[in-house]
Structures are given as structure tokens and as C-alpha cells.
Simulated scan of single mutants.
Amino acid sequence: MSAPTIPAPTAPSPARPGRPAGAAPGRRRTSLGRRLAPYGYLAPVAVLMLVLMILPVAVVIRYSFFDNVIISPTSVLVGLRNYVQILTDPLFRTATRNTAVFTGVSVLAHLVLGLGFAMLLNSPLLGRRTKTVFRTIFVMPWLLTVAIIAILWRLLLDPNGVVNFGLQSVGLIDGPVAWFSELNLALPAVTVMNIWAGYPFFMVSLLAGLQGISADLYEAAAVDGASWWRRFFHVTLPSLRPIIISMALLDVIWTSQQFPLIWMTTGGGPLERTEMLSTYTYKLAFSEYQFAQASASAVIMLLVALVLAVFYVRHQRARD
């Protein structure tokens, strides 16, 4: 009787190159789907940014190097001629000067008022209910839209408005003043209006920073005999410096591009006394139909904003 034969074990088939042994096609597809899932979630936002931001900016940059754009079927390449015309335009220099004054005064006043009100709301001398009332009053301008703010201040500064009535009552002025029509008062008037509308943003941010400062620092300074001013300059300001720099850079970018508040009150007048870069660019495009020159002006504003944005990002990275 012969012994039963045992079949020899079959050797496993070699794995295909590029696929680990035992990996199934379904599992590979699942792994690929997991890797692509985040890009699928980002795709709608990427498409919106491409259509609403990147493409319009690219079109405006292209327009700035041509002439007879939009209104003519044939455009002519002129290179940097539009930029030269804009930079040598006296009205552009006037708008740049007005924008610099308007932005500088507004940002400085936003910082001073915001820090002052934030310290008031952070003071232990005020009760909780009093702080709640003041916080509601101080933050009120931030809750209003630009259109409402413009209408409100036009009514307040009207020759027959509340401001003129109050100043006449105390004897500071002899007659009604047209604040938005006077050559020497129009720019200060819109600047005050912008200051009132923007200081709550500084106040809220600085209040959060003040509440994050440890009380031990103030106690240690008080033990060393430091006065209130020394504690403010050597404890409060150094602790708030990163927030102040970040807020100031953002406010410069936003304020330098302020358009609706100016347009709905003075429109850049009287006699270009409140002409800003934003209103200057708008008038070039939609009043004079100089779309190529308006595109060049818009690109110049974009470059200035990009420089400020670079400083802001570098500061944020250094802060982190």
C-alpha cells in the first residue's frame, strides 16, 4: 500500500509593483477618497475666490496697461502711460494728501478713544451694571451701517441741525454753519464722523487685551512704588503693543479705502477738499468714463494695501 501524496504548498503570487501585498482595489480607492476629501470641501470657496477676487483683479491690472477699454471694441496697448498720467495728475496728489490726513488722524483718534474707553470699562471703580450700560452706549456706532451713519451725521451737521443749535446756544458760533460745504470744515467734519464710526472696533479689541493682563504685574509694580502713569507706560502699553500694532495696520488699510462714508456726505467736495483716492478712482471710472486710468489708480491703491498687508502678516508671524 503506497503512502498518500500530500500536495505541495503553492507559493504566494508576487505583489504588483506599486501596491502593497494584500491591498485591495476598494481599499485603495477609499484611501484616495479620504485624501481628496479636504480639497472637495475647499473647492467651492476656491471657485468663489477665483471668480469674485482673482479674476476681477487680473482684469483691472490688464486694463491699466491699455487704452479705450470697455467703451471701445478695440483696445490699444499703452504700457505705463496710464500710470504716468495718474501720478502726474494734480487732483491725484490732492486726493493722496487728503487720504493721508484723513487716515492718520482717524487711526490716531481711534487708538486714543478706544484705549480710553477700554480702560474705563476695565476699571474696578465701576459696577457691573454701569459697565454694561456704558458698553452698550460705546459700542452703538459699530452696530450701525454706513448709510445710517452718513444720514445721521448729515442731519446732525445740517445748518438747522442739533450741532449748530447747541453751539449757538452756548455762544460758540454766531450763525448756522454748513459743515459739509465749508472749504475749511468739510475734511475735519468727515474725519470726526469716521472717528465716531470706527473707535468701537479698537475699544472692544483693547478691552479684551486689558482683561488678559495678569493682575500680579500691577501688584508687583505697586509694591515697587510705581505710580499710575508708570504702571500704564511700563505694564499696560507693553502688554497691549502687539494688539495696538495689529489694529493700527488693519485700520490704516480700511480707512485709506473708505468710500461710502465720503460719497454719501460730501462726494469729494467742496472743490476737492474731501477728495479721497477711492472717490477719485470712482469718478474717473463712472463720471469721466476713463476706465483705463481708473484701473491704474486702483492698481496703485492695491499696491499700497499689499505693502501694508505684508507688514501686517510679518507682524502676526513674529507675534505668534
Rank of each mutant, 00 (worst) to 15 (best):
Pro56Leu: 04
Gly40Pro: 01
Arg29Glu: 01
Thr274Ser: 11
His234Ser: 15
Gly33Asn: 11
Asp158Lys: 10
Leu115Asn: 07
Val235Pro: 07
Ser295Asp: 03
Trp229Gln: 06
Ile137Glu: 05
Ile148Val: 15
Ile70Thr: 11
Gly40His: 02
Met203Asn: 01
Asn160Gln: 14
Met247Val: 13
Thr96His: 00
Pro56Phe: 02
Gly268Met: 11
Leu277Phe: 09
Tyr39Val: 03
Ala318Lys: 14
Val313Lys: 04
Arg319His: 01
Pro38Cys: 10
Phe92Met: 03
Arg34Trp: 14
Gly171Met: 08
Val177Asp: 06
Leu80Val: 14
Phe66Ile: 04
Gly22Tyr: 10
Ser169Arg: 13
Phe232Tyr: 14
Arg29Met: 12
Arg35Met: 13
His234Glu: 15
Leu308Gln: 05
Val133Glu: 07
Leu121Met: 01
Val112Tyr: 03
Ala58Ile: 08
Pro270Leu: 04
Ala186Gly: 08
Leu156His: 01
Ala296Glu: 08
Asp89Asn: 15
Leu306Ala: 15
Ala150Glu: 01
Phe259Arg: 05
Leu210Thr: 04
Arg231Pro: 02
Leu144Gly: 00
Ala248Asn: 01
Arg34Tyr: 12
Ser256Ala: 15
Phe259Val: 02
Leu237Arg: 09
Pro12Asp: 12
Val192Thr: 14
Leu55Pro: 04
Phe233Asp: 12
Gly175Met: 05
Arg93Glu: 10
Met193Glu: 13
Ala37Gln: 04
Ile86His: 03
Thr99Arg: 02
Arg29Gly: 01
Leu80Ala: 12
Phe202Val: 00
Phe259Cys: 02
Gly26Pro: 00
Arg314Gly: 13
Leu55Ala: 15
Ser64Tyr: 09
Val170Glu: 08
His234Cys: 06
Ala285Val: 08
Thr5Cys: 03
Pro14Lys: 12
Ala8Phe: 00
Tyr289Arg: 12
Ile54Phe: 08
Ile262Ser: 06
